[in-house]
Design a protein around this nucleic acid. Sequence first.
DNA 1: CACCAATTGGAACGAACGTTCGATATGTTA
DNA 2: TAACATATCGAACGTTCGTTCCAATTGGTG
Lengths: 210, 210
Amino acid sequence: MPREASPERTPGPVRRRERTEENMERLLSAAADLMARQGYDKTSIRDVGREAGFSLAGMYYYFRSKEELLYRIQDRTFGLLLAQQERLAADGGTPEERFRRLVCSHLSYLSTHRDELKVCTFELESLKGEYYAKIEKLRRRYFKLMAQLVGDLLGASGRTGVDARDIRHSTLFVFGMLNWALMWFDPRRDSPTGELGEKMVGMVLDGLRG
Amino acid sequence: MPREASPERTPGPVRRRERTEENMERLLSAAADLMARQGYDKTSIRDVGREAGFSLAGMYYYFRSKEELLYRIQDRTFGLLLAQQERLAADGGTPEERFRRLVCSHLSYLSTHRDELKVCTFELESLKGEYYAKIEKLRRRYFKLMAQLVGDLLGASGRTGVDARDIRHSTLFVFGMLNWALMWFDPRRDSPTGELGEKMVGMVLDGLRG
DNA sequence: CACCAATTGGAACGAACGTTCGATATGTTA
DNA sequence: TAACATATCGAACGTTCGTTCCAATTGGTG
């Protein structure tokens, strides 16, 4: 008896590929979850397999090595964030508006992809060679994007003697706030990300006593 | 034969103890150096021994376990920082002055104890049980100290409706900037810490367009 | 059904790790 | 010098890890 007698469904090999992709998704997700909690080194392939419902050897059908698994998580997660941020930055508006958009969007992404982003942020140096170089390139692009915006803000502030180092430092301050949020943000305890974004933008633009 | 025969030079057993303490110092320093660069898990006791000039087994005279080694680094480093910051915070002055003092002092400590502080900040969760609890207590104290100050700043800003969550978030923003500096600060590239502290204080108090 | 490719897992390997043990060396004291 | 605590090390143990091999199973196709 045929499996899919019903007429409207996708017939066969597609089903198969879909299930494979679902499995890959489940693998990446379980790995990101564990690695975010205990770190890359403390997370064994065996742990990931147990969490995702695979045998140890069975998972090597989906990746060549543990490092490639880490790379796939970082590439997918950070690539998505970067694309989204570049789109938002290109959307126009005053520097303040664009900056606010980027910060809020970053925090929103953080709240929905916390584990993966934590892996991206704190496990870059667990990658080597080509893997490291590729992710590092994404990071640089994001940094430049934000630094451009921060430079515009500093320029529009009517300050004198703003140099490249000032821009770099201010940008690093901003990323410090954003990235450190990975360590404490808890959707149950902390206000919705929109509000949090406004607070952060408020401090960056006008400070605590502005 | 009395213990202290010669008046000016320490004769014997003191010399011995001194050398032992120097060795311990060298061990902690080498371990912090390696752990800051490659992380706690990737740093093997064998690596530390090679770097500090000890044999593998020889080091177990100085600590009971690898985890105790990590604890000693964190306790000493963070304990010193905390004591220094509590002293400075108690010294009086306006909230702005005290806040400026704390930030600059933290950055100064960071520039002279970068490796150790990096281990404190990013390897807390490699400790367990009693070790974890003790270091976590130090962290909480430092957070409260800073939050108190940030609360004063927010209160003095003439804002309305400042609640505990606002204070917490602003404090976390500040620590984000401070801690993230561990990832990029380079004494050769970045301005002297005093100047960097002024920049950071400037952003926190008045923002980029203040 | 027979065939083939996609998928899965049991078992084992070699390497690296933290830790322990027992013996040895070192320096101080009496 | 004899005796003793301090300090050091080579060698080994047991465990965990990432990875590989190979046989078995599954599911879709002709």
